[in-house]
């Protein structure tokens, strides 16, 4: 009930921001700009969906940017050095990214490291690994060779619904990128996983009350490991979409993306105190972030200022999360009367 109203509030805020830029920024409400927004932030939305899992588990994954780079470089190497077919490369890259995420989970579960320090350490390690395996360094001259495999570049396809519906003569509808649909599929799948399966319910319990989960016989270690693996998987998928778009990969791919992903997830109502939130919110959060950043660019604001604003938005989002959390706790206190064991 309250979760739903929070989601509506977020949606309303998104629509309001969107309308604001339509009016204020001259070239915002154009078909090509909508294409930019959809293709440029679908992968952020996917990263945000992935990031929701560690955060629901009271953790965080700072390594997603590095996993993006790692998966991207694996695609690059397999394609340009080993000349594997695209249909084989994609699953390999996804598995590698999922394993990288699972390793984060392993560090958290088995070595009992704090999630942020574990993923900060793997951030460095994965980024280092990217340099080690970089085909750009190993094979001179490859850095200017684009990736041409249709399995990969085919992901960067746009659908012209305007012509399909035969209305392109009257209105210019934006062409919708395939990545947007992939994002929707990921959203639907993980929404189902969280909301309607035992695993999902268990995950909420592990995040909301780990002791209760353990005593209910839930294998908290496995759930946690799986949560971080999901984050890795999403980073891998985002990497593939990015490589398809850029037709290459660099060592710096995904730098700083953990921040957008965390911001989108928190804006989307996934609480840092664990166990509260959905994956729909983070997707709206990602496109809200995109709308603001693209809108500001069109208003001619420097990219450095945008960097400042991204930080400010992140602080505002956690501030809002904090207010909601305090409100929840106050309700709990009212119920629990004299003592709180929150």
């Amino acid at each position: 009930m309250t979760a739903r109203s929070a989601a509506f509030a977020l949606l309303a805020f998104f629509v309001a921001t969107f309308i604001f830029f339509c009016v204020a920024a001259p070239r915002f409400a154009t078909a090509s700009n909508m294409e930019n927004l959809m293709s440029g932030f679908s992968f952020v939305a996917i990263l945000a969906i992935g990031q929701s899992f560690p955060i629901l588990l009271r953790g965080i994954d700072l390594s997603v940017g590095a996993i993006v780079a790692l998966a991207g470089m694996i695609v690059f190497d397999l394609e340009l050095i080993f000349h594997l077919p695209g249909w084989l490369i994609l699953p390999i890259a996804l598995v590698a990214a999922t394993l990288a995420g699972a390793l984060n989970g392993w560090l958290v579960v088995k070595l009992k490291l704090q999630p942020f320090i574990a993923t900060l350490a793997t951030l460095a390690a994965y980024r280092g690994l990217v340099y080690s395996i970089s085909g750009r360094q190993l094979v001179p001259g490859l850095s200017t060779t684009p990736i041409r495999d249709p399995w990969i570049t085919g992901l960067e396809t746009y659908f012209d619904f305007g012509s399909l519906l035969g209305i392109s003569d009257w209105v210019t509808l934006p062409w919708v990128p395939l990545s947007f649909f992939i994002m929707l599929v990921v959203l639907a799948a993980f929404h189902f996983l969280l909301g309607s399966t035992r695993f999902g319910r268990s995950l909420y319990t592990v995040g909301g009350n780990p002791e209760a989960a353990r005593l209910a016989g839930i294998d908290t270690a496995r759930v946690t490991l799986a949560g971080y693996a999901v984050s890795g998987f999403c980073a891998g998928l985002a990497a593939i979409l990015l490589v398809a778009r850029l037709t290459t990969a660099t060592e710096a791919l995904g730098t700083g993306m953990e921040m957008s992903a965390i911001a989108a997830a928190v804006i989307g109502g996934v609480s840092l105190s664990g166990g509260i939130g959905s994956v729909v919110g983070p997707v709206i959060g990602a496109f809200l972030l995109g709308t603001i950043l693209i809108g500001l660019t069109l208003l001619g604001i420097s990219q450095y200022v945008q960097q400042i604003l991204t930080g400010a938005i992140l602080v505002a989002a956690v501030g809002y999360d904090r207010i909601l959390d305090l409100r929840r706790r106050r309700r709990l206190v009212a119920n629990l009367a004299e003592e709180t064991h929150a």
Binding site: L123, A124, Y126, G128, L129, Y131, S132
Partner: peptide, 8 residues
């Protein structure tokens, strides 16, 4: 790159 990994 090995130094980075080693540090992690």
């Amino acid at each position: 790159d090995i130094q980075l990994i080693a540090k992690g």
